[in-house]
Design a protein around this nucleic acid. Structure first.
Lengths: 211, 211
DNA sequence: TACGCTTTCTCTACAGTGTAGAGGAAGCAT
DNA sequence: ATGCTTCCTCTACACTGTAGAGAAAGCGTA
């Protein structure tokens, strides 16, 4: 039952990405992927050297899919748009994006995103050092936020989580936290993301002169 | 050969933390931990329900170890000091900190850190909503930075990585990135961390009035 | 001292993982 | 038809977490 020709590098990558994104709980495995493609596990290894290499391809495809808007000439606007694009990508591909953040290896298609950010900041008059640092800062923010969002930290707390939190705070050891309880349990993802962007852009604007 | 009494909840937690921190490459496993403690793997399960629960205990111990400096009355200074404390914790416990960031579950000893940040911001006059958002932003930054640092992204690039990067950029598709090459390959972790703090604090100062 | 009870550890076993190595079948070129 | 290459399968191994059944050590009570 050798069904030749059903597999392609690309088809495997797409299936892997879909599997990562769909299965929130049960995690990705080579064997499950093979099962879904109705193929022997080892068949995958003919197209990709190993799991890590396959993951690399998935990450490549993921970042390549990020829709970077054209530059407007307003660096603040451009940065907002680029960050929102990355966030949208994460929402569209939660599982893959998670894997990407933990991937710990350079993914070439990231260049596109970085280039857009570098361009915006350089054109705004930032020094080279400030630009490089600012981009890492922005990327760190967006990735962290996106992962938090995917994980559910920006949803209103469940009754259970809320009660656990209240119990933790009932001892009186954390008065500031306790006073913020109502705010903590009901976050607003969109507003919070914009808040972060506001802070970062205002801050960058502030250090632009002094850097 | 039943060596009774050698195991303790605490001893297991400490050994697990040490193993996470030391073994940079090869990853932690229950069996390896048991081997190191010279005990049958299943012995661990008498003291901790399962791997996840054990990890929870490790995270608890980790965050409890974070040395939060006393408040000075200057919120900017306090925030800097707290963030540096978290960064130092990450440097002292790279493996555990990594695991912590990916842990995806609430760790009670985090309260201490959050409380300190909440207190600083509330005392500076931030609104409740701004305070909660600012703290998530600060934590996101510090954790991201610390993980980058642990992973080695803030070390000067190796000759090999540098050549790969140069090759990627040689096509001319990323002129801004190419112009920053020399800056990118030689980062300065300490300065970069401070840069991020400067930006965040300046930015928070900026939105304080308007929020 | 002898009995049992509880606590702590071991042994065996199972389902899952990534993947090396050998072999088989399909298609193509000669 | 013959061989070559490409794609896939099968078997096997070392590894993972952990369920379930004991075994051994220490204790309390008789």
């Amino acid at each position: 039952m050798n069904q030749r020709g059903t597999l392609t590098r690309q088809r495997i990558v797409e299936a892997a990405m879909a599997m990562l994104d769909e299965s929130q709980d049960r995690q990705f495995s080579m064997r499950k992927l093979a099962a879904q493609l109705q193929v022997d596990p080892m068949a995958l290894y003919h197209h990709h050297k190993n799991r890590h290499a396959l993951m690399g391809e998935v990450m490549l495809a993921l970042m390549a899919e990020c829709e970077i808007p054209p530059a407007t000439g307003d660096w603040r606007q451009d940065i907002r748009a680029i960050c929102q694009a990355v966030r949208q990508l994460a929402r569209r591909h939660p599982g893959s994006f998670r894997a990407f953040v933990v991937f710990e290896q350079w993914v070439p298609s990231e260049h596109r995103v970085n280039e857009a950010l570098y361009t915006a900041l350089l054109s705004a008059g930032f020094s080279k050092v400030a630009t490089v640092r600012a981009v890492r800062l922005l990327i760190a923010y967006v990735e962290s936020f996106a992962v938090d969002e995917i994980t559910g930290w920006l949803e209103p707390l469940t009754r259970e989580d809320r009660e656990n939190l209240a119990a933790d705070l009932s001892g009186g050891a954390f008065p500031a936290t306790a006073s913020l309880l109502e705010t903590i349990v009901r976050p607003d993802a969109d507003a919070e993301f914009v808040f972060g962007l506001d802070v970062l852009i205002a801050g960058l604007d502030g250090v632009r002169a002094s850097a």
